[in-house]
């Protein structure tokens, strides 16, 4: 049963799906890090991106990856819109108000999707997106590999953007100290708009890349929100590098758990690891040391 090649394949497929978890969690963590808002509608943003991908791929008969070019700006604008009209007005309110807003948004989006696309499960019927390549004798799924490359590229670009560009630096400044950023003349409100947009776009891109090997339904966001919280907290809330590493760790652990134990027990393994890491590093892998 414990065939070593199975374990290697498990690590590979875990890393691949982990890349998508990372991207999803990066969106969540950047919004929290900069705005201090927990976005409970994050899974629903991904769900919308999945439906958009489905519609584009089915109506134009193209590879789902083309949807990337529409989903990225669309979700970015949607994020800006959410920030401008829903979050901004309550930014200084107590956190529970913000939680209510994003939670309400999540329920509203689920029901809008229910209205537009119906309650059915849908998945892509493009035949060419299902294939594997053999790499050194191991089976690697192409759509998962593409998802991994896509997710890591977007995450990498985002990191470079935050480190090098002026806007990126402004975003980091706002995350560090909002008042300080205001004092040195950063237009904090605008930075917030961009940040929420980026966070939403991350969820969107994750949705595009997962669609070829997953299915969607109006409630699919609930399946993914839990794992993205786990990843974000594991890496240290607000830490992008943390979310990146956390996603890969969770992906590999889940996948190995599925192989060494079974799908039912793997959740116990994942969450036990989560608890153990938080026990030694309470603020997450990349979080600040608590004294």
């Amino acid at each position: 049963m414990f065939d070593p090649s199975l374990i290697v394949e498990g690590v590979i497929s875990g890393l691949l799906i982990g890349g998508v978890y990372s991207l999803l969690a990066i969106g969540l963590t950047i919004i929290f890090g900069v705005l201090g808002v927990i976005n409970f509608a994050h899974g629903e943003l991904m769900m919308i991106a999945m439906y958009v991908t489905l519609v584009i791929s089915n109506s134009f008969q193209v590879q789902p990856y083309f949807a990337f070019f529409l989903v990225l700006p669309l979700l970015f604008l949607f994020g800006v819109f959410i920030q401008k009209f829903l979050i901004q007005p309550v930014l200084d309110a107590p956190p529970d108000i913000q939680v209510l807003i994003t939670l309400g948004l999540s329920i509203a989006l689920q029901n809008i999707a229910l209205l537009i696309w119906g309650p059915n499960y849908q998945s892509l019927q493009v035949s060419r997106n299902q294939s594997v390549i053999h790499f050194l004798g191991y089976v690697v799924s192409v759509p998962r590999l593409l998802a991994f490359i896509g997710a890591l590229t977007v995450s990498g670009l985002l990191l470079v953007f935050l480190k090098k560009s002026n806007l990126g630096k402004a975003i980091r400044a706002c995350a560090d100290n909002r008042e300080g950023a205001l004092l040195i003349g950063i237009r904090v409100e605008r930075v917030f708009l961009v940040t929420f947009g980026i966070g939403a776009a991350c969820a969107g891109v994750a949705g595009v890349f997962i669609m070829p090997f997953f299915y969607t339904s109006p409630h699919i966001g609930l399946t993914f929100i839990l794992i993205s919280f786990v990843v974000a907290i594991l890496g240290g809330l607000g830490k992008i590098e943390g979310a990146l590493v956390g996603g890969l760790i969770i992906g590999v652990v889940e996948s190995l758990g599925g192989i060494l134990a079974d799908e039912s027990i793997k959740q116990i393994i994942t969450f036990s690891l989560f608890i153990i890491i938080l026990f030694f590093k309470p603020s997450g892998l990349f979080g600040k040391k608590l004294r």
């Binding site: 498990g10 889940e254 190995l256 758990g257 599925g258 799908e263």
Partner: peptide, 10 residues
């Protein structure tokens, strides 16, 4: 389920 690749490889 979120990922069933482990079981499928088994």
């Amino acid at each position: 389920l979120m990922d069933v690749t482990g079981t499928v490889s088994k």
